[in-house]
């Protein structure tokens, strides 16, 4: 009795082992699973442009392991089907075989606004497992945007905008010129007054620096008054530049500039220059009654 009991126990263990090996599967018994993925080339598209919608099925095993039922293309809203194609690929990795089947749809954006690719159901049959099943994709939303303007058109718009701006600026200047009073030459804030204010603002405790500064002010005044470029020129060159102008105070100007040169190039003589006399000469230069006139 005891010996029969032991034999039955061994038999049950062996049977259990065989059953467990069968239920966990192995290399000769691949998993029946199939993976479905969907993808879209862009979530937004301009009106009249195209996008690609792809359904990818992949599984472990040879390409003919599953029979995939023919299915209709996905239903579309605000999109038009242009073309479709499918392809099957097989590859092996670490001795195992893998297969992929890809369905690609080229879709054309119809009109501006939201568009949709509806859900699709695919039925399949696993030959190895003798099982049939299906899976369903998720619906996808796409935004259709307005058509892009041609570059040339944008450039023309830009040029037009620039032309309008320049034109209005020119008109504004002409308007201001017409409105400007003609008698403002020696009014408050005239070039002469401005120059005199700058002269008085100089620090006359340091006569050398002040006289050199005064020369600069006189030259800037002449440049503005007579529309000449005199910076960096010597006194003789400045006087020659004024030859073509009717210039009643030419002699006075020459005296002032020569006095400035004397101080600039013999600094120790600066103290001997009479500040009052020098300022008096400058005041005479600004006097409006014999102002400078450009010979026309």
């Amino acid at each position: 009795m005891v010996r029969f009991g032991v034999k039955l126990r061994v038999l049950l263990i062996l049977l259990g082992t065989v059953l467990s090996l069968h239920s966990f599967g192995g290399e000769n018994n691949p998993s029946p699973s199939i993976l479905m993925e969907t993808d879209i080339s862009s979530k937004s598209v301009r009106e009249g442009d195209t996008l690609t919608y792809v359904i990818k099925l992949s599984w472990e095993g040879p390409s003919d392991r599953f029979l995939i039922e023919q299915f209709s293309p996905p239903e579309l809203e605000n999109l038009v089907m242009v073309s479709s194609r499918s392809e099957v690929q097989s590859s092996s990795k670490n001795g195992a075989e893998y297969s992929t089947k890809k369905y690609s749809y080229l879709l054309l954006a119809d009109s501006v606004g939201p568009a949709q690719i509806r859900a699709i159901t695919i039925n399949y049959y696993d030959i190895d497992q003798d099982q049939a099943d299906d899976f369903r994709s998720e619906p996808l939303e796409v935004q259709v945007l307005p058509k892009a303007r041609p570059v040339s058109s944008r450039f023309l718009w830009f040029l037009s905008a620039v032309a309008i701006l320049l034109g209005s600026g020119y008109l504004f200047r002409v308007y201001r010129k017409m409105k400007k009073p003609q008698v403002a030459e020696y009014e408050t804030g005239s070039l002469e007054e401005q120059a005199q204010e700058r002269i008085l603002a100089l620090n006359w405790d340091a006569p050398e620096d002040s006289i050199i500064g005064a020369r600069k002010i006189v030259i800037e005044y002449l440049e503005q008054k007579l529309n000449l470029s005199l910076s960096g020129k010597t006194t003789a060159e400045i006087m020659r530049s004024l030859n073509s102008l009717s210039f009643p105070k030419k002699k006075l100007l020459q005296e002032i500039l020569e006095e400035c040169d004397r101080v600039k190039f013999t600094p120790h003589l600066a103290k001997e220059i009479s500040e009052e006399k020098f300022l008096g000469k400058l005041e005479k230069l600004w006097e409006p009654d014999q102002g400078y006139q450009v010979k026309l």
């Binding site: 010597t234 006194t235 003789a236 060159e237 040169d261 004397r262 190039f265 013999t266």
Partner: peptide, 10 residues
């Protein structure tokens, strides 16, 4: 003149 100015050099 007892001193030189740039005009003399030029």
């Amino acid at each position: 003149r007892g001193y030189v100015i740039p005009e003399d050099i030029k």
